[in-house]
Write a protein that binds this DNA or RNA. Structure first.
Lengths: 218, 218
DNA sequence: GTTGAAGTGGAGGCTTTTTCTCCGCTTCAG
DNA sequence: CTGAAGCGGAGAAAAAGCCTCCACTTCAAC
């Protein structure tokens, strides 16, 4: 559960800074792209640039840490939605919708593809975490397929890529609260469409494997 | 209909380069942001950097030209959809859908907000073109509201911002054709939802004016 | 064809931006 | 109280990007 090789135990203030930098990085990378100046990240975290570099080797190290944390957040949200669904007797699509709204707030789908783009896709540390997160979401999708609340033509890949589109902030000077409010509204629009019509789309979307292989061999 | 003050009539090759740069700029700005190196734009156009600077004063001049052209494209698409709808006896939502698919292909909604962000919003040359384009789209939306094919709660601002989200390319190395294919699929999903349920959303979206004022005073 | 005006590419000087280290000062925790 | 741990930010070094200059090429009018 700790970093690579037993961590030497951070002092309380250092640990707090570490978290603040990570949170700031997620915001800044989402707003300004994965190449945003690290000084901006430090400033947003309310911390000196040296502190950022003390905790993270370089941009790549920071990106990797951000992705790891975001994927973990996503997995937790998916599992909590799945658990919530079996307690109440709500259907699979409701659970999926809950997860998607949560992910929007976490900005997971905005930051992960952005950051992953600059990282080694086959990284040994990243791969299992990616699998775990995707697996949890896949179970959510399967359960919605199984109880008929989500049309079979709408696949994991459809929902994932759609979520990416909905997660990225609108360009231009749109205030962040308005942006988020609109994103949730747009998601509701999509979810309502999925719910009302079992034949929304004529043909079946890509599978996860198809999406991945299209990505790796462009 | 020509540029500012009667243009001195370009030679054929120069005119061709001018168009190629404009087209390349639209693509590159959409893919890499409005701050992308102009050398990349020149390279994509198959032209030297000097040629780019000979035709456009600087980045701002190029951005402005791109926006002007994109807005003009959008207006033409909206008017053609509106005209097509009255010929056939299709409803307002179909016309709107046709327009939205066309705009996706033109990448208008991706490039315009991006570029406008770096330009003077109250620019005297831009404003009338922006009005003309928005006006044509507004007529399309109104006609869909009027014949009941589009729920009243779904506003111009909703559709515009949604189109922006759908238009931006997915980050990561997603091949362009796959990206576009998915974008059209996602749009179909949204349109199907709009069509099937007159009460998709509980409350009314922002008006155009509300969106604009939220943008200008953040 | 010839000719000269129009157009072209890209090397390179200059500026701006970003990175990342170093070191004197501050804070935590035992 | 003290020393180990942590901190901020100045600034050297590097990288990225801008845009001009000029020797060369192409177009089109005659």
């Amino acid at each position: 559960m700790s970093g690579r090789r037993d961590a030497p135990a951070l002092r309380a203030d250092a640990r707090r800074n570490h978290e603040q930098v990570l949170a700031a990085a997620r915001e800044v990378f989402v707003e300004r792209g994965p190449g945003a100046p690290l000084e901006d990240v430090a400033a947003r975290a309310g911390v000196g640039i040296a502190t950022l570099y003390r905790r993270f080797r370089d941009r790549e190290g920071l990106l990797r840490a951000v992705v790891l944390q975001a994927l973990e957040d996503s997995r937790a949200a998916a599992e909590s939605a799945l658990a919530g669904a079996s307690e109440d007797d709500s259907d699979g699509l409701s659970a999926l919708g809950e997860y998607m709204h949560a992910v929007l707030d976490l900005r997971v789908s905005a930051v992960v593809p952005l950051a992953l783009d600059r990282l080694d896709l086959d990284d040994a540390e990243l791969t299992p975490v990616r699998e775990a997160s995707a697996g949890a979401v896949e179970r959510l999708v399967e359960s919605a397929h199984a109880d008929g609340s989500l049309p079979k033509q709408v696949t994991f890949a459809d929902l994932g890529t759609l979520l990416v589109r909905l997660s990225r902030p609108l360009p231009g000077s749109v205030p962040i609260e308005l942006n988020d409010q609109l994103a949730h509204r747009h998601l509701d629009l999509v979810l309502a469409g999925l719910r009302s019509d079992p034949n929304v789309l004529a043909d079946e979307g890509l599978t996860r494997q198809e999406l991945r292989s299209a990505r790796s061999r462009p």
